[in-house]
Write a protein that binds this DNA or RNA. Sequence first.
RNA 1: GGUCGCGUGGCCGAGUGGUUAGGCAGAGGUCUGCAAAACCUCCUACAGCGGUUCAAAUCCGCUCGCGACCUCCA
Length: 508
Amino acid sequence: MTQPEHREKFQQFPIHIFNSLSRNKELFTPLNPPRVGLYNCGPTVYGDPHLGHARAAVNFDVVFRYLQYLGYKVRYVRNITDVGHLEDEVAETGEDKIEKKAKLQQLEPMEIAQRYTNTYRHFMHLLNILPPSIEPTASGHIPEQIYVIKKIIENGFAYVMNGSVYFDVQAYAEKYPYGELSGKVLEELQSNSRVLEGQEEKKSAFDFALWKKAKPEHIMKWDSPWSVGVPGWHLECTAMSSKYLGIPFDLHGGGMDLKFPHHEGEIAQSKGAFGCEPVNYWMHNNMLTINGQKMSKSLGNFITLEELFTGKHALLEKEYSPMTLRFFMLQAHYGSQIDFSNEALLAAEKGYKRLMNTLQTLEKLQYEGTTSLDTALDAEINALTTSCYEYMSDDFNTAKTMASLFELGVKINAFYHQQLPLLSISSETFHLLKSTYIDFVQDVLGLENEESGDQHQIDSLMQLLIDMRQRARQNKDFATADKIRDDLKERGIHLKDEKSGNTTYTFS
RNA sequence: GGUCGCGUGGCCGAGUGGUUAGGCAGAGGUCUGCAAAACCUCCUACAGCGGUUCAAAUCCGCUCGCGACCUCCA
């Protein structure tokens, strides 16, 4: 995919990323070009993947895709958290989320983790999200996590208490600033911290566990120098990102809700263990709301991907396809909140189909003959193709990029329907238009056609019906012709008679 | 309560000191046997009130409304 023209455009529009840490848009300079290390916080596999998972995954998939498109060699690490996160209502028992579910369902903890990992991967695949280069699990990296804890203890930023190890935030804060990413002030944290049982072990309420001693009844536990127990909440990402990407690495992503305490913890652990920032650029995608309300289980507006794709949810008027969801998300910038509603999804569905129809139209376009150049039009199309790079490089602005693609689509359709002469642009411009449009829609934004079934057989069946109707039309038997068209329409297939005399069809 | 952010046309959503975002919906037109699609044209907004400026939706202040984080969370 690394074509010379990409390099040229790339040089013209170097990538700028809004770095959550500095709160500024910064020129992206990888440490070891052309290699880029990308880390994204993946799911905790104790439940069905939902819309929030999709947003994070889609956004960083586009980052991954665009970097690769420009010729970077990207190692993309997205973890699977299969251990270690405490659940609210059982926090005082130190019980593990995954373990809790296992007991309820009488399954092995790893069986649960595996099942939801499979489900997650399945839905990511439906969303056309490229698999990461490495998908490490927390449970598979216990020694690495123990190693990080040892380093932190050695450096004096952690203490052992009754077989558990806690990060000493106060000691850390004397040497490094704490709370930079999330804008937290230590004193405020202190006064606002909720008092939980089992916290009397900690020196301060905001100290966090690096290792937690297990209760005898716990099933998921590992040996360590301190106790048989489980690793802390934020440790896996530090251990696995440093292992596979080095320290520091280039780019770390995740949902905004992870800024505190998760990513703040990662920064502290990394500096505490290795004395340096874990990563140069932090990217955070914003949250979703549903009909203007926060998506949460207690509000009953929590939508899983399966519910969205099947339409089986009280808030959904119908099902929406994976590509509709992907399109919908890409029409907004990752840094903005987006609001879900049936109207918004319906609009996205239509927009997506228009984009796909244009893509198919473009593939049918043939440039033949001699140019009779329309300089203004030629320049306009050139500028629009260039703007795709410009906008993507400007903090991955998929919304603006899509706007340019739609404007190019107007030209593509006009060429195809002979509303504009194709030969009014140069052959070079035509090929640039074609490659840019196809590449950005398919490779960069990852939007693809969703037709199902055996397309070849459907085509041949459809051709049969189209021929029959054509004959009826030639005989002015419009009743028959219209019946064929209307009956197909009832079945969700739309016929279009084109100027050229050809009839094409689309699915609704 | 603390911290941060947002309020854009009928809906969704970019943008952010002077110039068309885009999608969906709606109106008119071209094309068509009729449609559909496509194309053309129109609908041209920035919560309210003040202030800065030659110029503000964009900067500042206040008011109102909303959201996120502070606790597992994408």
